[in-house]
Amino acid sequence: MASGQGSVSVKKENRPVPVAFHGIALRARDPEALARRARAILGWPVLRKTRSEIVLGDGPELFLRILRGEPEGVVEMHLAVEALSKSRRRTERDDLGGDSRSEELLEGLALTLREFKRAPGRKWRKKRS
């Protein structure tokens, strides 16, 4: 059951324009095991690793975030958009280099809309040739 549907309504002309899904976050009891499986399938490098999360991917434009915890499942979806500011709803400057806003799609599942505006913060950078 979707929650808070009324609160996310935005006039058609002010709606952000979706560009691409660029990230997903999963919660897992054993992030290391899931990261190994995901790496074997996708071949993505580890972008960062802490006790609570492992992030795999190409960079802020395409990533898989694995959080430690229960219940297991999808907890975040990240959608790159254009014209986010036109909706005049509050956005936050984030470390991926975007202005973003999160809405709860389902209980425990957040959809983050992000308009990339600048270079990502240091922890999102990765050396590539």
């Binding site: 395409l62 254009e82 990339f116």
Partner: peptide, 14 residues
């Protein structure tokens, strides 16, 4: 193409 669609504006601004 994917990087361009998602990051193109940010890269240009940078």
């Amino acid at each position: 193409d994917k990087e361009h669609a998602v990051l193109g504006s940010a890269m240009g601004a940078e």
